[in-house]
């Protein structure tokens, strides 16, 4: 029971990362690698602020701001500097590693006896692991509602059009570089926020906590898409949150099967690779038809 609640809580918290990634990977169609630097950047900034006595809400907000800053740098490199997005992201990610070390001062900083957003009488009165479910629910609900509202504004539609068809967008007077920078800032802001919240949930920030985050975010997006199929934009946002929770359940099952936690990242990568190849297998071997027919031996 505790394991299930924990998986839901973690899924909700990590869903912020999936939502951030959705803006670049899916809407803009940008392979933004900044993410692996932004996530620990948000965590570092948040933890450093907390250990210096900042209020938890302020530290969390700073994590969002830090992420936006990282996104801005990638965006300016890509649009004004004409560096390919993939490379721009890798450059910022690499640079951020040093920045994060500077901010943290060492490779790992604990939040033991430091007040965080999880420090409240209400949250501490809940049964174990329910605190991350509640915090995750609140953040996910607010972020999904704000994103859904934003994407329905004129600006949001211009942003979607930029990702869908940049040439047409420019012909309609939409400044596509501005939209791309905005998308990268918003996306990385959310990812920094996710880093800050997860650091508080874990009780520490670690310099290596960004490794593999892209896979986790993509897993949430893609599992959501595979599970729910054709959806409207707003539904897709909710599907990402569900996908993120499903992903935690998959990991939970894998763990229950007796795999070592050290193999987690390999397993994550394999699971995601399989899920991504599903449409190809589907076309080639007609899995669904085969399943419907039942496994009958023809010859």
């Amino acid at each position: 029971m505790n394991l299930i609640v924990s998986a839901i809580g973690q899924g909700l918290l990590w869903a912020l990362l999936g939502l951030g990634l959705f803006l670049t990977f899916r809407i803009l169609d940008f392979p933004d690698m900044t993410v692996e630097g932004t996530f620990p950047f948000g965590a570092s900034v948040c933890v450093a602020a907390l250990t210096h006595g900042a209020a938890p809400w302020l530290a969390t907000l700073l994590a969002f701001g830090a992420g936006m800053l990282a996104g801005l740098v990638t965006g300016v490199l890509a649009t004004k500097g004409h560096v390919p997005v993939l490379l721009a992201g890798i450059l910022v990610m690499t640079g951020l590693y040093s920045v994060n070390l500077r901010i943290l001062g060492r490779a790992n900083v604990s939040l033991l006896n430091v007040k965080t957003i999880f420090t409240s009488r209400f949250l501490e009165s809940l049964p174990p692991y329910f605190n991350s479910v509640v915090v995750g629910m609140v953040f996910i609900a607010v972020v999904i509602i704000l994103l859904a509202l934003f994407l329905q504004t004129e600006l949001g539609q211009a942003f979607i059009a930029t990702g869908d068809h940049p040439t047409m967008a420019r012909a309609l007077g939409i400044s596509t570089p501005r939209m791309e920078i905005m998308g990268l800032m918003l996306s990385n802001g959310l990812i920094g926020l996710a880093g800050g919240i997860i650091a508080q949930s874990n009780g520490y920030a670690d310099i290596n906590m960004g490794v593999g985050t892209i896979v986790i975010g993509l897993a949430a997006i893609i599992i959501g898409e595979v599970a729910f199929g054709d959806l409207s934009m707003n539904q897709r946002l909710v599907a990402i949150a569900c996908g993120s929770i499903f992903y935690r359940f998959i990991l939970l099952i894998v763990l229950q099967l007796g795999f070592n936690t050290d193999d987690f990242k390999l397993i994550s990568a394999v699971v995601l690779a399989l899920v991504m190849m599903l449409p190809m297998f589907e076309n080639k071997y007609h899995i669904r038809r085969m399943l419907k027919k039942g496994v009958t031996v023809d010859d």
Binding site: Q152, T153, L155, A161, A169, L172, G173
Partner: peptide, 15 residues
């Protein structure tokens, strides 16, 4: 709707 706003400033107004 996108075309209707061709060349106009696009802000945070609902679409």
């Amino acid at each position: 709707l996108l075309a209707q706003e061709r060349g106009r400033h696009r802000g945070l107004r609902p679409r």
